[in-house]
C-alpha cells in the first residue's frame, strides 16, 4: 500500500511544482531556474532545523523571504532591461546551476554533494511531529500535498481570470505596445515571477521534509529545472491540469524504466526524456492534455454538425 501512496504523493507534489512553474512559463517567461527556488526552500528549512533547531514552519518564512529576494535580484534587471526569450532562459539556467554549486561548496554546513538529513524528531515511538513537520506515516503527507496541489490549482484559476494574465500575454507578444497602453511591464512580470518562485519554494520545503533528505542534485541544479520544463511541456502548460498530467507522465515513465531495466542503464531515462522532449515540442506543443482536449473538442464539433 505504501508504494502507490508514495507515487500519489510525488505526483501531487510535482504536479503542484509544475503548476507553479507554468504560472509564468505559459505567459512567455520560460524559466530554467526554478530548481533554485526549490533548492532554497529545501535547504533553508533543513539547515535552520539542523543547525539552530528552528521549526520548519519558521524556517519556511526565512525560505520565502530568501526566494523573493533572489527572484527580485534576478528578475528585476532581466525585466527592466528586456532580457527575454533565450537570454532569459540562459540567465535563469545559470541561476539554478549557481545555486547547486553553492550547496556543494558550503559542504561544511550542507553536507556537500552527499546531501543532508534533517535531524529526526520522531523519538520514543512518536509517529508524528507537526512542529518538526515529520510524519512516519504517509497518510498525513497525502493530505498535505493534496491541499497544496489544490491551492496551486486555485492560484492558477485566480491568475487565469485576472486582467494581469491578459496583460502578461500582451507583454509576451508586443512589449512596447503593452507599455504604451499604460502597463507597467517590469512590475507585471516581477509580480508573477515572485508568486511562481514562492510557490516553487514551498514545494521544495515539503519535498525535503517528505523525503527527509536533501541533495544538491535532487532539489536544485539544471537537471531539476529541466525536469520541470519537460514535465510541463509533456503535460501541457496552457490548461490547468496539464502540469499535473505532465508530473504523472514523467514520474510513471521514470518509475517504469527503473522497474523494467533496474539500474543497468543509469542514463536511460535521461536519454529517453531528451528524445521525447524534442518529439513533444515538434509534434505536440500543447502537451498530452492540451492535445487530448483539442481532439475531444474537434470530435464534439464533428458530432454536433454532421456534414
Amino acid at each position: 500500500m505504501n508504494y502507490p501512496l508514495h507515487l500519489a504523493i510525488l505526483v501531487l507534489l510535482w504536479g503542484y511544482i509544475y503548476t507553479s512553474w507554468s504560472l509564468m512559463g505559459r505567459l512567455g517567461l520560460v524559466s530554467f531556474g526554478h530548481g533554485a527556488f526549490m533548492g532554497i526552500g529545501a535547504y533553508t528549512v533543513v539547515m535552520l532545523w539542523n543547525h539552530f533547531g528552528l521549526s520548519p514552519w519558521l524556517g519556511a518564512i526565512a525560505a520565502f523571504v530568501f526566494s523573493a529576494v533572489v527572484a527580485i535580484v534576478i528578475g528585476w534587471p532581466c525585466f527592466r532591461f528586456r532580457i527575454v526569450g533565450h537570454y532569459f532562459a540562459l540567465v535563469t539556467l545559470a541561476l539554478s546551476e549557481v545555486t547547486r554549486l553553492i550547496f556543494i561548496a558550503a559542504r561544511d554546513h550542507t553536507g556537500g554533494s552527499l546531501g543532508a538529513t534533517p535531524n529526526g524528531a520522531l523519538v520514543d515511538g512518536t509517529s508524528a511531529s507537526l512542529w518538526a513537520l515529520q510524519f512516519s506515516s504517509k497518510l498525513p503527507w497525502l493530505l498535505i500535498v493534496t491541499a497544496l496541489w489544490l491551492f496551486g490549482l486555485w492560484v492558477w484559476r485566480q491568475v487565469d481570470r485576472s486582467m494581469g494574465r491578459l496583460a502578461l500575454q500582451a507583454i509576451s507578444e508586443e512589449e512596447e505596445a503593452a507599455a504604451s497602453i499604460g502597463i507597467h511591464v517590469t512590475r507585471a512580470k516581477l509580480r508573477i515571477t515572485i508568486i511562481s518562485a514562492l510557490m516553487t519554494c514551498a514545494g521544495g520545503i515539503l519535498y525535503a521534509q517528505y523525503q527527509l533528505y536533501v541533495n544538491p542534485d535532487t532539489v536544485s541544479g539544471i537537471a531539476i529545472s529541466l525536469q520541470m520544463v519537460f514535465g510541463v511541456i509533456a503535460g501541457g502548460m496552457f490548461v490547468m491540469l496539464g502540469p499535473t498530467v505532465g508530473a504523472a507522465f514523467t514520474l510513471l515513465l521514470a518509475e517504469g524504466l527503473r522497474l523494467a531495466f533496474g539500474n543497468r542503464y543509469p542514463a536511460l531515462d535521461a536519454t529517453i526524456y531528451g528524445v521525447m522532449l524534442v518529439l513533444f515540442i515538434i509534434y505536440m506543443p500543447k502537451g498530452i492534455l492540451g492535445a487530448a482536449l483539442e481532439g475531444w473538442k474537434a470530435a464534439r464539433r464533428r458530432k454536433a454538425a454532421p456534414a
Binding site: 486582467m163 491578459l166 500582451a170 508586443e174 497602453i181 499604460g182
Partner: peptide
C-alpha cells in the same frame, strides 16, 4: 502591434483597464 492571441475586445479593454 495588435495582441494577436487576445480577442479584439480584450485588446481594447486592457488599454482601458491599465491606461486610465
Amino acid at each position: 502591434k495588435p495582441f494577436r492571441k487576445l480577442s479584439l475586445v480584450d485588446n481594447v479593454a486592457l488599454a482601458a483597464f491599465y491606461g486610465a
